[in-house]
Amino acid sequence: MPGSPENFTGEVSIQSQYAGDENSERASDVRFSAGARTAWHTHPDGQRLLITKGTGWVQEWGKKRITVHKGDVVWFAPGVKHWHGATKDSAMAHIAITYAVDGVTADWLEHVTDDQYLGGKRVQGA
Rank of each mutant, 00 (worst) to 15 (best):
R122T: 14
G79N: 14
A36Y: 08
M1E: 04
G125K: 03
G46V: 03
R26Q: 12
H84P: 07
I66T: 07
T9E: 09
K81V: 08
V30A: 00
I14H: 00
Y117P: 01
Y117F: 15
T42P: 01
G85Y: 05
G54C: 13
A96Y: 03
Q116A: 09
Y117C: 03
G120W: 08
R26C: 03
V101E: 13
Y117S: 01
W108P: 06
M1R: 12
K88P: 00
I66F: 01
S33Y: 00
S24N: 08
L118G: 00
R65F: 10
H41Y: 01
V30Q: 02
S24H: 06
A126K: 14
G10D: 06
P78T: 15
H69I: 01
E22W: 14
G56Y: 04
Q47T: 06
T55N: 11
D115R: 12
G62D: 09
F76P: 02
M1Y: 13
W61I: 04
D21Q: 14
T98H: 05
K81R: 15
S24E: 13
A93K: 10
T52S: 12
V80P: 06
W108Y: 12
V80F: 05
V73E: 12
Q116C: 02
G103N: 11
H94E: 02
W75C: 05
G3I: 02
K121M: 11
W83L: 09
D21I: 01
P44H: 11
D72F: 07
I97L: 12
R26S: 14
K81D: 06
W83Y: 13
Q116H: 05
G20D: 14
Y18W: 13
W40V: 00
I95T: 13
E60C: 10
R31T: 00
A39L: 01
G20T: 15
H84W: 08
T98A: 15
L50A: 04
V68P: 00
M1W: 13
G79T: 04
G71F: 04
P2W: 02
H82D: 06
L109N: 02
A36F: 09
S13T: 15
E11L: 05
A39W: 06
G71N: 07
L109G: 02
T87H: 10
P78C: 12
S16K: 05
S16M: 13
T52M: 10
A77G: 11
A91P: 04
G10L: 05
I51V: 15
V112C: 06
N7K: 04
H82W: 10
G79I: 07
E22S: 14
D102S: 14
R48W: 09
W40F: 01
G119D: 01
Q59W: 05
G103F: 14
V74M: 08
E25Y: 06
Q124T: 15
E11D: 07
T42H: 04
P5C: 07
R37N: 01
Q116L: 04
F32K: 04
A106R: 02
Y18E: 02
E60W: 11
G35E: 03
D115Q: 12
A34Y: 06
W83I: 01
G56R: 03
Q124W: 03
D107F: 01
G119S: 05
A106N: 12
A106H: 02
T55A: 12
Q15C: 06
V80Q: 15
I97Y: 05
V74E: 07
A100R: 14
M1C: 05
Y117N: 00
A106W: 00
D72I: 06
